[in-house]
Nucleic acid binder design. Structure first.
Lengths: 400, 400
DNA sequence: GGTGATTTGTTGTCTCGAGAAACATATTAG
DNA sequence: CTAATATGTTTCTCGAGACAACAAATCACC
């Protein structure tokens, strides 16, 4: 699906000026190196459809900006002059912040998509936004200290468990944190002087999944992720992230799945996240909330009829949400993350059980997969939030 | 997906990238004139951000292609040299075909977005695809006869009440018509020699709404339309039509709205279109199926408690589908068409009744509107299907 | 009805990005 | 060591659009 022709057509040239064309091409090259990992210039030439000489020029410009570097290739066994390998500069980093009820995670993510360092700051009570700014600022200083020379910070990405207006990074509502209308990214950028962006955590997990995980190269997929505090998600349609008007799109946790159901924290009844919960499954198999990591194996191995019945019931409810998602988005892939993946595995990974009620045309070409659940998924997603800004206009780095 | 890149590879033309820039700018200008109606060159200059001289050049090229013409402006009361008004050539037409159970509608749609002519071909029984090809071909010949000199047919757009694979115009399933796996657009293009495209009818109605109706200029909206044969819909997200992997996206009629509900024609239970039906409402107010046009006024004026209860119940079910749509798409607008608009009006147009269960952040900036229900909506949508291909690459017309 | 201000079309020149081709270089195969 | 092959590098050309100078057409005002 990622042939060179498609790639070019996927990024149509907008606007008028020739320098916009240049910017678009720079963006394409940098984006490829970021997403696909190190690529030879010859491969870049094929993937972009551009001329050899042009690619050489673009790479030289990106190298001058300090965003990529070229290295000699490891000797392959192909004839011809070896093509230098273009690497993303991993010294170009984003700061990732993920506040949660019991802790704040802070990390450094390199442009290669790898987490270079991270710390977990324990919190006795749910941190306030001011706490986050204070604690994270200190942690950032610690992570950066002594490495200032080799690191270049592009900005800060924040993953918030709640609704975030992406245009200005305001947290509209984060029920579990007890936040409302908090200008979090402004506070962070004022405290640190780095530009900051914020978004919904589940959406950022999906971004990581889209660039480096199961959704890599997939133009149309939906993502469901279940955690202790509920179910979130997101969608990619036509190769683009679905954000909606303000960034609240993809709240699959609030898909309707049951008439006269449980009241949800959002105020409605019958929401997926009110009906299908990690807490309920943990309790059924006798695990404490902190032992969620064991849920998958316990569910899979349990022969208790009550547990099997619960798994079946929860899968039926999940199937309703998946059905609606498939009917509305017509994806080729449904990715399940967190405890939803455990649930799916426990049910025998029968895709049909989740898809059989979707309309036939739409369900035929859908596959279901577990998320490539890296523990650093969220931090990588934060990095994506930052790097996507850089990749959209690599030359903008000159301005800082 | 006939991207520009493929075109280049078929006909080796000098210059690939600058050429693409030119095409993109031609496309922008033609698209503006198509969507916004006649515009002066000065306005085009402002809207595109291009240079005066460039816009002049682009318009000249489009005029040479026979796609636009310039006319002297009506005297405005502004100083300065008057700017010529650029009009879309309405002689450039698309053929619109909409097969239904009881009739086939065939029309001519000008690039200005107006229906120039139309005929309704009655059908005693649901027509087969072969019937459609035969009857529509004859109707097309009739519509074009005598006007060949002044008309330039770009292609055929077909609105099908069912799931259509947009890549090749195959009807995968059209339950009400009794069709399955019919290569309709190939059949039509072979019979008429015109290129043909097909898509889901509700989706095309939404396209018309998006370009000329309530959704004009709105980047994020969802569209629900109810008719005799069910409920369809579509969505625009980030300014782009949501099509999904194959073109089946936006089936809001198959959103889940009720546990243990009625069995739907799709095989599932609890689908919106199985629970909220035009037939049920017609029966409640004592109208025959053919009198659907009167439904709105009957519902609005009825004081029968049974009818009021039914309206209330149906609105509650619709609200569930709207809630899910708002939570998943975060639109700024929900457009209701067909009998759903009647239903909404009968309920007093209380937006809150439809939105109150959506998550707060997402529902705040949503407004609900009735569709700009032009009777020609579907034919205009068919035209859009064709013209969007032309507008994507205006120079392609040279090849025909 | 003339005159100036204003806006826009038109024309010629300039810049810049990318493609093409010739040439140079580095590897593999034998 | 040589031929084949693939790719980097350099130079030239082309084309799209910006820019600036000039021309044209309208309005406002006297």
């Amino acid at each position: 699906m990622s042939s060179s022709r498609e790639f070019v057509s996927r990024t149509p040239v907008q606007g008028g000026a020739t320098d916009q064309l240049r910017r678009s091409n720079l963006s394409n090259v940098l984006g490829l190196v970021h997403r696909e990992g190190p690529l030879s210039r010859a491969e870049l030439t094929r993937l972009t459809g551009l001329n050899r000489s042009t690619v050489g020029d673009l790479v030289a410009e990106l190298a001058e900006l300090g965003l990529v570097y070229e290295a000699l290739p490891t000797t392959g066994n192909v004839p011809g002059r070896p093509s230098p390998i273009v690497h993303a500069q991993s010294g170009v980093v984003a700061i990732a912040i993920n506040p949660e009820v019991d802790a704040i995670h802070v990390g450094l993510v390199g442009m290669s998509g790898r987490v270079l360092a991270k710390v977990r700051l324990e919190a006795a009570t749910a941190p306030t936004p001011a706490d986050v700014v204070r604690l994270a600022s200190a942690a950032i200083a610690g992570l950066l200290s002594g490495r200032e020379a080799s690191l270049r910070v592009v900005g800060i990405g924040v993953a918030v468990p709640g609704q975030v207006r992406v245009s200005d990074g305001t947290v509209r509502e984060a029920t579990h944190m007890g936040w409302a209308e908090e200008p979090l990214s402004r506070m962070l950028s004022e405290a640190t002087t780095f530009p900051a962006w914020a978004a919904n955590a589940a959406n950022l997990a999906m971004r990581a999944e889209s660039v480096f995980g199961a959704g890599k190269g997939v133009d149309d997929f939906v993502y469901f992720i279940g955690g202790a505090s509920g179910i979130g998600g997101g969608a990619v349609t036509g190769g683009r992230l679905l954000s909606g008007a303000a960034g609240y799109a993809g709240e699959f946790g609030h898909s309707f799945v049951r008439s006269r159901g449980t009241r949800c924290s959002c105020g409605a009844t019958g929401c997926l996240e009110a009906e299908v919960t990690q807490a309920g499954l943990l309790e059924a198999v006798g695990l404490a909330p902190a032992e969620a990591g064991l849920l998958g194996s316990r569910l899979a191995s349990s022969r208790d009829p009550g547990v099997r019945a619960l798994i079946s019931e929860q899968l039926d409810l999940l199937a309703i949400a998946v059905r609606t998602a498939v009917n509305l988005f017509n994806p080729t892939l449904v990715v399940l993350g967190g405890f939803l993946s455990d649930l799916y595995d426990a049910g025998g990974r029968e895709g049909d059980a989740l898809l059989s009620d979707a309309i036939r045309s739409a369900r035929e070409d859908v596959r279901i997969e577990g998320a490539a659940s890296a523990s650093d998924q969220l931090l990588i997603g934060c990095g994506e939030l930052v790097f996507s800004e850089l990749i959209a206009d690599p030359a903008s780095l000159l301005l800082h």
